[in-house]
Simulated assay, not measured.
Amino acid sequence: MSEQDNNQRPPEKKEKKSLSLNVVSNKEHRGFGAGTIDLSDVACVMIDNGEAYIDVGAMHAKSKIERGIKFSTNKEDVPNGRPCWIVWVAVDRNEEGAFYAGATACPMLVDSEARRGWKILAQHVNNLDYAIKRRFMLDELGAEEKQALKKLLVSHNAEWWERSSDKLKEALNV
């Protein structure tokens, strides 16, 4: 085979590697994708004015509520803010089928008119992690918000609700 033949060969296609959120640790790196978290089984539920709905944009702080809002970590910057919630809901599967495995709520204040808001990003990240780790942290939600979340989860998939743990059902029983 001549050098010219080598140059005319199409380049070999490499297998495309998928990217996911990588968790950094002090352990020895074990290659591409090691220590990643799969966020495909986490849903973002927004609760605003007593209504709960799924908003995938919340995963990147671009939910309908958050778009165009300048957030602060100081509550005093948002004196006329209305309370809103992001609830991270993790879904898991066992031999019976899928179920709601974790749910954690994060508060926000949003003043759409002033385009200002309050939230603690670290709490949102930590609560997302807790939902992935199959925890339920819904105590901060009021009765109206709990009812809205329960209604959404049941209407989204009643079978998942039935297979979910009693911890979730008790937390949302109002």
Rank of each mutant, 00 (worst) to 15 (best):
A122Y: 10
A58I: 08
I120W: 09
A43N: 12
D111I: 12
F32M: 03
V56K: 11
H60R: 10
V110L: 02
R93L: 06
P107S: 06
N127T: 06
L153K: 07
S40A: 05
D41M: 02
G102K: 09
S25T: 15
T36W: 02
Q123N: 09
E76P: 00
I132S: 02
D48R: 10
G102L: 11
K119L: 14
V78Y: 10
L21Q: 07
F99M: 10
N80F: 14
K150R: 15
R134D: 05
N157T: 04
K119D: 04
N173D: 13
T36K: 05
E76K: 15
I47K: 02
H60S: 13
L19Y: 13
A103G: 04
S72Q: 08
E3Y: 04
E3F: 07
E76Y: 08
N173H: 13
G117Q: 10
Q8A: 06
W88C: 03
H156Y: 12
M137R: 10
N173C: 11
A101G: 06
L128Q: 05
K70H: 12
H60L: 12
E76A: 15
D129C: 04
E76F: 00
S25Y: 00
L149S: 09
E170L: 14
W161Q: 08
P107E: 14
V42Y: 04
R82K: 14
G102M: 09
E12G: 12
K16G: 09
V23G: 01
V174L: 05
V78P: 01
L153M: 15
C44T: 11
E12K: 15
K75W: 05
Y100K: 06
Y53M: 03
S112E: 14
D166H: 04
A34R: 01
R116D: 04
G81W: 07
A103Q: 11
R115A: 11
A90C: 12
D166I: 13
G68H: 09
S164I: 07
V45T: 01
R93T: 15
V42M: 11
H156T: 09
G117P: 05
V56T: 03
K150T: 00
N26Y: 06
V45D: 03
S72W: 08
A61P: 00
K169D: 11
D92S: 15
D38F: 03
D55W: 06
D41Y: 09
N22T: 12
S112F: 06
D55R: 00
M59S: 03
S72N: 11
E95Q: 11
I47T: 02
E66N: 08
V154H: 01
R163I: 07
K151W: 01
G50E: 06
A105P: 04
T36Y: 05
V91P: 00
R115L: 04
Y130K: 10
C106P: 02
T73H: 12
G57S: 07
K27T: 05
D139G: 08
A61C: 05
R30K: 15
G57D: 01
E162H: 07
E162T: 04
E3D: 12
S20E: 14
T104Q: 08
K64N: 06
H29E: 08
K17Q: 15
P107A: 01
L19D: 10
S20W: 10
I65R: 04
S165G: 15
S40M: 01
N7C: 01
V110W: 04
G81S: 00
E12A: 15
C84A: 13
